[in-house]
C-alpha cells in the first residue's frame, strides 16, 4: 500500500503538469507517423504485401508504436545523470529511508501511464478520423500475457535508462553515450522499421538484444501476431534481460555511489 500511495502522489504531480505530458506525447507520436507516411508511399508503389506484412498491419504497427513508445520507454537517464549525479540532486534521495530505484520507478511509471493514456486518446481520434482499423489481441489469456509483457518491457527500459544514467558516476560527459544509446534503441527496438524487415542476420542479432523486448515484441503481442509459445519465449527473454540489468544496476550503484561527491550541493 505504501508503494501504491507513493505512486499516487507521483501521479498527482504528473497530472498537475498535464501540458508537459501532452507536448511529450505529441512529440512521441511524430516520428512513427512520419515513418508511416513513408510506408504508405512504399506500399502504393510496391504492392499489397512487404515482408509478409500487409499495409493495414504496418499502419497498425506504427500507430501502436507511437503509443507504446509513450507507455514503455522510460526517459529517466538524463535526469539521473545530469540533475542527480552531476548537479547533486541525488542527495535528497540518498538520505531518505526509501529506495532511490523505487522512488524513480514509480515516479517514471506515473509519467508513462499518463502520457500513454493521452496517446491512446489521440490514437483513437486518428483512428476514427481516418477510419483506420487497428487489430488487437482478443483472448483473455493472450491479453493477460500481453499485459505482463508490457510491465516487463517498462521495467526493462527503466533499468536500461538507469544504467545509462549511472554512467555519469564515471564519465564527465554523458551526452555522447546517451546519443549512441538512443540510436541503438531506435534501430533495434523497432522504432524505424519493424524488425522483421531487417536483413536476416541483423534481425537475428536484434532478437538476442534487449531492445526488441522493450517495444517491438510487446507491439507484436498486442497485435496478436505471437503464438502462446512465442509469447512465453518473449516473457522469458524479458525476465532474463531484467535479471542481467538488475545485476549491472546493483554493481554500478554500489561502486558509483562511493564516487559520488554531491557536487553543486
Amino acid at each position: 500500500m505504501r508503494y501504491f500511495r507513493i505512486f499516487l502522489i507521483h501521479l498527482h504531480r504528473v497530472i498537475e503538469n498535464r501540458s508537459r505530458s501532452i507536448v511529450w506525447t505529441l512529440l512521441a507520436l511524430f516520428n512513427p507517423l512520419i515513418y508511416l507516411c513513408y510506408w504508405l508511399a512504399v506500399y502504393k508503389s510496391s504492392g499489397s504485401m512487404i515482408g509478409g506484412w500487409s499495409l493495414s498491419e504496418v499502419t497498425s504497427y506504427y500507430l501502436l508504436l507511437s503509443v507504446a513508445g509513450s507507455f514503455l520507454i522510460a526517459h529517466i537517464d538524463e535526469s539521473v545523470a545530469i540533475e542527480d549525479i552531476y548537479e547533486g540532486g541525488l542527495v535528497k534521495y540518498v538520505i531518505r529511508p526509501f529506495s532511490y530505484f523505487w522512488d524513480l520507478f514509480f515516479g517514471e511509471l506515473s509519467w508513462r501511464i499518463f502520457q500513454g493514456l493521452i496517446g491512446i486518446g489521440i490514437l483513437f481520434i486518428i483512428g476514427i478520423s481516418f477510419q483506420l482499423l487497428i487489430s488487437f489481441v482478443s483472448s483473455p489469456l493472450h491479453i493477460f500475457m500481453t499485459f505482463i509483457s508490457f510491465l516487463l518491457a517498462y521495467t526493462l527500459s527503466f533499468l536500461f535508462k538507469m544504467i545509462l544514467g549511472f554512467s555519469a558516476f564515471w564519465l564527465t560527459e554523458f551526452r555522447g553515450i546517451q546519443s549512441s544509446a538512443e540510436i541503438i534503441l531506435l534501430i533495434f527496438a523497432g522504432f524505424i522499421v519493424p524488425l522483421q524487415f531487417l536483413p536476416t542476420q541483423i534481425k537475428e542479432i536484434s532478437f538476442l538484444l534487449p531492445f526488441a523486448y522493450m517495444v517491438y515484441f510487446p507491439i507484436l503481442a498486442i497485435q496478436g501476431r505471437l503464438e502462446y509459445v512465442e509469447l512465453l519465449g518473449v516473457l522469458g527473454m524479458q525476465i532474463l534481460w531484467i535479471g542481467f540489468f538488475a545485476c549491472v544496476y546493483r554493481l554500478m550503484w554500489n561502486r558509483g555511489i562511493k564516487l559520488f561527491t554531491g557536487v553543486g550541493q
Partner: peptide
C-alpha cells in the same frame, strides 16, 4: 517539488518516513 505546493512534498515524506 517546485511546481506543487509544499504540502505535496510533505505528503510524500509522510509516506516515505511512514
Amino acid at each position: 517539488w517546485w511546481d506543487l505546493p509544499a504540502m505535496d512534498t510533505f505528503l510524500l515524506n509522510k509516506e516515505i518516513y511512514q
